[in-house]
Every structure is written in C-alpha cells, then in structure tokens.
Amino acid sequence: MSERMTPPAEAARALRDVERRRDQARASEQESRWVSVVFGVAIFAQMAAPDFVGDDVRSWISMAIAVLSLVYMVMLRTPRGGALLGRPTRVRRDEISPRFVRLAQLVMVAVAVICFLATRFLPHGPFPYTGTVVGAVIGATLILFGRNLQRAMNSLAFRGDGKSGLDGGTYGSR
C-alpha cells in the first residue's frame, strides 16, 4: 500500500467517489411491487367494504391494516425482513433531512384531521359508492405508482444539502 502523499487531483476524485457512493446508497431504498399491491388492496378494502357489507366491517379491516402495518414496520428493521420486502439495504435514519421529518409529521396530522372531519360530517359520502371510488383511486395509485412515489419521497427525504454527514464539511466537487 502506498505511503506517499495523495495528490490533490486524486484526493478530489476520491472525495467525489465517496459522495457518489453515498448518493447511490440513499437511492437504494426500494422494495418489491407486491408490497404496494398488498397495501393498495388493503386500502381499497377498507374504503369499499362499508358500501357492500355495512359499517360494522370497517373496524375489522382497520385492525387488519394496523396489524399489517405493524408487521411491515418490524420487517423493515431486520435484514431478513428487508430481504423479504425486496429491500437490499436500510438507509440510516440520520440520513433523513430534519425538514422532511417535520413536513411528514405535518402531512400526517393534516390527513388525520381530514379523515376525522370526513367521517364526522360526510359519513356516507356525497354520492353512492363514494368510498369505493375513492378507495379504487387511492389503491390503484399506490399499486401503479407506488415505486415512483417512493423514489420521489426518497429524493425529498435524503436530499443532500452539500454537507457531508461524516464531518459536516463540503467535499466532492473541487
């Protein structure tokens, strides 16, 4: 192994490679399409069921979705679970931009408030089969565009701000 000083051009190239590989790792967080299909079908079932079998079944489907989400979260945390979901890596949580975390929390609160208001004031929807139509749209969007949505979310969540997570300095483009 060489013990000589690294020439500046070589050092700059190495720094660019480090940054490129980090970006590559951030972009790797993808999962199999079947995960989107399962969640898309579950959301459709949750929204369409009251139109066909009454409101009583809604709580059971909600519970099933909660269990499904819990299992999914547990699987995400282990290498074997990640492999079953088709995820080759798990990006470190400290790579997520704090701004994105705040935005995501706001969006979740807004969705919860909208769902509460919708069930409170529009229990049966403005027209027949509203739940089925909305469920079909959301479910199909998730199934067809789930992976694209995930890529878009990743680019927002892991967007670099020109700072290195290693030492807080900029590097890679000199």
Binding site: M1, S2, E3, R4, M5, T6, A14, D17, V18, R20, R21, R22, Q24, A25, R26, S28, P79, G82, A83, P88, T89, R90, V91, R92, E95, G165, L166
Partner: peptide, 30 residues
Amino acid sequence: PADFDTALLDPTRLSIVSLLVGVEWAEFGW
C-alpha cells in the same frame, strides 16, 4: 501520510465503505 487510512487508499475499499456509511446494512449482492 499517517492521516490517511492505508486500507482506504485502495479505491475499491473506499467505495465499499462509502456505500456502507449511509446504510444500517446492505446485502452482499447489492
């Protein structure tokens, strides 16, 4: 020269470590 890590002067090893620094784990195949 002591500031540099001799193992990481190798570009391939530097690439491997750079890939792994942003993840909790990665599959060998990936």
